[in-house]
C-alpha cells in the first residue's frame, strides 16, 4: 500500500508579530515548525504502516529550508521525502499550490491514500486538500477524526457542525485530518540521526521536474492576489475602573445602565 502525506513548514504563529513602527514582520525569534495538523496526518499514515505493509512518502512545497520538515517526517518514520522548491513556486495561492502538489503526486506514481492536515495555521484556508483531490479526480473526506482502512476502501468519521458523519469511500482517496484523530509520535533519536544522512532518500523537485511551466505556478499562476496586508487594531476607548471591588462592581453595572443595556434575565 502506498500512502502520501502532505506536510507544510510554517512559522510558529504563536510568536509572529509585526513591528508597529516599521510595519515589518518581526522574524527574530520566530521558529519554523511542521504544521500541527499535518503531524496528525503523518501519524495516521504511520499507524496504518504499523499494521499493514505500507510505504509512506512525505511531500512538502516550500523554500529550501523546508527540508527540515521533510527530515522531521523521515525521523517520525516516513520512508521517503519529496521537497518541491523553486523560485517559480513563490507567492502561490491555493490554486497554484494545488497545481504544483497535484503534479508532484502524479509524478510520484500510484497511491492508495493521500493524507493532509485539515488546514495550515499560517493561512487557515483548508483548501489545498480538496483542491488536490479534485485535481487528481479522487474522492475526499475532510475534517476526519477517525479512520479505518479495509478492502480497498476507507471509512472515516467526519466532524461537522454539532455532529459527526461516518463516510465510506473507495480508494484511492484523500483525507484531511483533525488533531483529535490521534496523538502524533515524536521522532526517535535513531531516526533523527538517519534522517540527516544523504543516504536517506529525499528528492528535490523544481517546476521543470514536475512538468509545469513557471506561468502555471507561483504568483504568476495564481488566480487571487494579495492586495495589501495590515495589522488589525481594536479601536475601542478603554475605560479603566479602579477602587474597591464594590466600587468596581457598581462601576460595571453603571456602565451598562448608562448605555441602556440589560444585564440579567
Amino acid at each position: 500500500m502506498k500512502l502520501v502525506v502532505l506536510i507544510k513548514q510554517i512559522p510558529n504563529t504563536s510568536n509572529v508579530r509585526i513591528d508597529p513602527k516599521t510595519g515589518n514582520l518581526v522574524r527574530e525569534g520566530v521558529t519554523s515548525i511542521m504544521n500541527p495538523e499535518d503531524r496528525h496526518a503523518l501519524e495516521a499514515a504511520l499507524s496504518i504502516k504499523d499494521h499493514f505493509n505500507a510505504v509512506v512518502d512525505v511531500i512538502s512545497m516550500g523554500p529550501p529550508q523546508a527540508i527540515e520538515v521533510i527530515c522531521e517526517g523521515l525521523a517520525m518514520g516516513a520512508d521517503k521525502g519529496i521537497l518541491l522548491t523553486d523560485r517559480a513556486f513563490a507567492g502561490a495561492d491555493t490554486w497554484a499550490t494545488s497545481t504544483a502538489l497535484g503534479n508532484a503526486i502524479r509524478k510520484n506514481g500510484p497511491f492508495d491514500l493521500i493524507l493532509a492536515g485539515r488546514q495550515a495555521i499560517d493561512g487557515d484556508t483548508a483548501q489545498i486538500g480538496p483542491q488536490i483531490a479534485e485535481f487528481l479526480g479522487i474522492p475526499q473526506i475532510t475534517c476526519v477524526s477517525a479512520l479505518e482502512l479495509s478492502d480497498g476502501k476507507v471509512v472515516a468519521n467526519r466532524i461537522i457542525e454539532n455532529g459527526c458523519e461516518r463516510i465510506e469511500t473507495p480508494l484511492p482517496a484523500l483525507v484531511t485530518c483533525l488533531a483529535s484523530l490521534n496523538e502524533p509520535r515524536y521522532p526517535t533519536v535513531g531516526r533523527i540521526l538517519d534522517s540527516v544522512l544523504e543516504s536517506t532518500p529525499i528528492e528535490i523537485w523544481n517546476a521543470a521536474d514536475i512538468g509545469v511551466k513557471a506561468q502555471e505556478v507561483g504568483l504568476a499562476g495564481s488566480l487571487t492576489q494579495v492586495l495589501k496586508t495590515f495589522t488589525p487594531k481594536g479601536g475601542r476607548e478603554t475605560q479603566y475602573l479602579e477602587g474597591t471591588p464594590s466600587d468596581i462592581a457598581s462601576g460595571i453595572v453603571q456602565f451598562f445602565v448608562d448605555r441602556q443595556v440589560r444585564l440579567g434575565e
Binding site: 512559522p11 509572529v16 499560517d122 493561512g123 487571487t224 494579495v226 492586495l227 496586508t229 495590515f230
Partner: peptide, 15 residues
C-alpha cells in the same frame, strides 16, 4: 485574517 489573526490580508480575484 492570516497568521492566526496577527495580520489581515485583503485579496482580489482578477483572473
Amino acid at each position: 485574517p492570516a497568521f492566526g489573526g496577527n495580520i489581515m490580508a485583503t485579496i482580489v480575484t482578477r483572473y
